[in-house]
Design a protein around this nucleic acid. Structure first.
Length: 571
RNA sequence: GGGCGCGUGGCCUAGUCAGGAUAUGGCACUUGCCUCCUAAGCAAGUGGUCAAGGGUUCGAAUCCCUUCGCGCCCGCCA
């Protein structure tokens, strides 16, 4: 168990015992007091009423029953709070040693979690390149998966490929029947095929009589015509390869792909349809079947959820239902990263799972859309920023910054650092914001390299590496009594808090909380760097400070790694 | 019409789940700091009716109600 957790549990036990003596029952909720008032606090206001005593008197009463022991150095009261001070030397010894020993696993609990977690993210339609609006999904998904891994879960990531439905047929029809008159923006299949897709849409608008050809193709696809299935899948694969290529540019990959068509082909969709038809919620209208979901909390003009069309074929969410039932045979926890436009569909899916007798439900992380200052991103209106363009721009801007600062590096090294900094900057600027908040994409925010940004953290890491590189030989055994000034102590406390932050983010499926922590840690390291000499210190103090620098380095690096951001040793 | 989410200094943002001590950081702006481990840094300053109103409470950015603004959704599309 990490040192800070021991401190917390010591307090919880002591306060719990005191409360039993006072014959009151209340959960022991601790909070962080303002600086200078201890390390954890127990507010007594809720107890004030129960005991009919002033909060401060309650606090004094509780404090009088607790003797410093274990990780508790001091118990004080102030204005209705019982404030606890940690035994700093124990905390420091425990946390810094742990970071030096666990290295890139610092932040992981000693005992791993048993549960398997499947994070489904991205899952964009394979009909064209990925744009910035949609890129929020892989960034949140990949970051969350990395946090969960560090928190000790057995994590798999997956991309669900929508290779069924009208859009992919439209694209395939376009590839087959339309010759491109313009060059794609980039020599990549996702850019090439999206032109076929767009032109197919246009052609059908102008020539509605061709609609039947597309309908026929859709029919053949849904009824498993081998040639159509093969052709469609090949096209999707090509576009998908282009999309994944873009994502790898952001240091994002997935462990596997699941193709939607699989659930049509293997009969699982049909079995689900047959079972749903027998449900008491099922009704039929013009040959199409739906569930009446009003009793499942679905509100609005329409509470019917159609799970078949009148020709008997399935709709998207029906196939998604099959996918989720398949998921739950492979995982304990399913987490989906989805745009907020999927909320209703997921409510319907959850209701359908209940009706199917499945007691598990996917957990959904919803994110709001990224828009441009000019308005909503729209491929039709040409109002999009493609992810590839954003990456290129970020790396170019970062390259200019590197050049400005470093004249001693090789061209190759500068390019390498620019890539690390530029991409880190992008990822951080998405992951640092609560998923449910809308983002208006602005170049100056996305390419901000100072203040609250990835380069700020990367810079702190590079500084730590620089010190360690110049340190020569030093012994990893250190004495935590050497940490005497405030900058060192604050830094130690932040490092000690890292495992708890990782656990909290993992538990609540949040990425932005870790972003805030990482920023604080880097800021504190920079203060330490400014005020506390390391290499010029002597003897035990030098040794202890080097240990602290290395612990900082691992913590910064592990936090950056959670965001898929590389930690350069120089920049 | 109904459902869901968001609203915190000029701009971005933490805190909201679990009410509690002086509302967190950043950008921008003003001003200092490189004979000292990388100034992508550090320090100081200006700037707030926590959308508005009401309620609950000893205490509300946080909980409840109403209103306003923005986003998303309410298809036999995906």
């Amino acid at each position: 168990m990490d040192a800070f957790q021991r401190f917390k549990e010591d307090i919880e036990a002591a306060v719990g015992a005191a409360l039993r003596e006072l014959k009151v029952e209340t959960p022991v909720v601790l909070e962080r007091p303002p600086t200078g008032m201890g390390d954890l606090a127990f507010p007594c206001f809720p107890l004030s009423k129960k005991l009919r005593k002033a909060p401060d008197a309650v606090a004094k009463d509780i404090a009088s029953r607790i003797e410093p022991h274990g990780m508790i150095e001091k118990v004080e009261t102030s204005g209705g709070y019982v404030n606890f001070r940690v035994v700093f030397e124990s905390l420091a010894q425990g946390a810094v040693e742990s970071a030096l020993r666990r290295k890139d696993r610092y932040g992981t609990p000693d005992e791993g979690k048993e549960s398997r977690v499947l994070v489904e993210h991205t899952s964009v339609n394979p009909t064209g390149p990925i744009h910035v609006g949609r890129a929020r999904n892989p960034i949140i998904g990949d970051t969350l998966a990395r946090i969960l891994r560090l928190a000790g879960y057995d994590v798999t990531t997956e991309f669900y490929v929508n290779d069924v439905g009208r859009q992919v047929v439209m694209m395939t029809w376009g590839v087959k029947h339309i010759a491109l008159e313009q060059e794609p923006e980039r020599p990549k299949d996702d850019y090439r095929y999206v032109l076929h897709y767009q032109q197919a849409n246009k052609k059908l608008e102008d020539h509605p009589e061709l609609e039947k050809e597309v309908d026929d193709m859709l029919y053949r696809l849904e009824h498993g015509d081998p040639d159509t299935v093969k052709l469609t899948k090949e096209n999707c694969e090509k576009v998908l390869a282009g999309v994944m290529d873009s994502l790898r540019g952001l240091n994002i990959d997935v462990d596997g792909f699941t193709w939607e068509s699989r659930f049509v082909a293997d009969g699982s969709v049909d079995r689900i349809i047959e079972k749903l038809k027998k449900s008491e919620y099922c009704h039929e209208q013009d040959g199409a079947y739906y569930l009446e979901l009003e009793s499942f909390g679905i509100a609005g003009r329409e509470t019917k959820w159609f799970f078949t069309r009148s020709d008997g074929t399935s709709v998207y969410t029906t196939r998604d239902l099959a996918y989720h039932m398949d998921k739950f045979t492979r995982t304990d926890v399913a987490i989906n990263i989805l745009g907020e436009d999927h909320k209703l569909a997921m409510q319907e899916l959850a209701a359908a799972l209940t009706i199917m007798g499945v007691d598990k439900k996917p957990e959904i992380v919803y994110y709001a859309f990224v828009s441009l200052p000019e308005g909503k991103m729209s491929t039709r209106k040409g109002l999009v920023v493609n992810l590839d363009d954003l990456i290129d721009e970020a790396v170019d801007r970062a390259y200019d910054e590197v050049r400005k600062r470093r004249t001693d590096l090789s061209e190759e090294r500068m390019r390498e650092i620019a890539r690390i900094v530029g991409i880190g900057s992008l990822r951080y600027n998405i992951a640092r914001i609560q998923a449910e908040k809308q983002i208006v994409f602005k170049w100056e925010d996305a390419l901000n390299f100072e203040g609250s940004s990835a380069p700020f953290v990367q810079y702190a890491h590079a500084r730590a590496c620089s010190i360690l590189a110049k340190a020569g030989d030093w012994t990893r055994a250190f004495d935590s009594n050497q940490y005497q000034n405030e900058q060192e102590k604050e830094l130690v406390k932040l490092i000690a808090g890292f495992p708890a932050v990782v656990a909290d983010c993992a538990e609540h499926r949040k990425t932005h909380v870790l972003a805030v922590y990482m920023q604080d840690l880097a800021a504190q390291f920079n203060q330490f760097y400014r005020y506390v000499p390391v290499l010029k210190a002597e003897g035990d103090a030098r040794n202890a400070r080097l240990a602290l620098v290395e612990a900082s380095m691992w913590t910064l690096r592990n936090a950056l790694n959670c965001f898929g951001i590389k930690a350069p040793e120089e920049m």
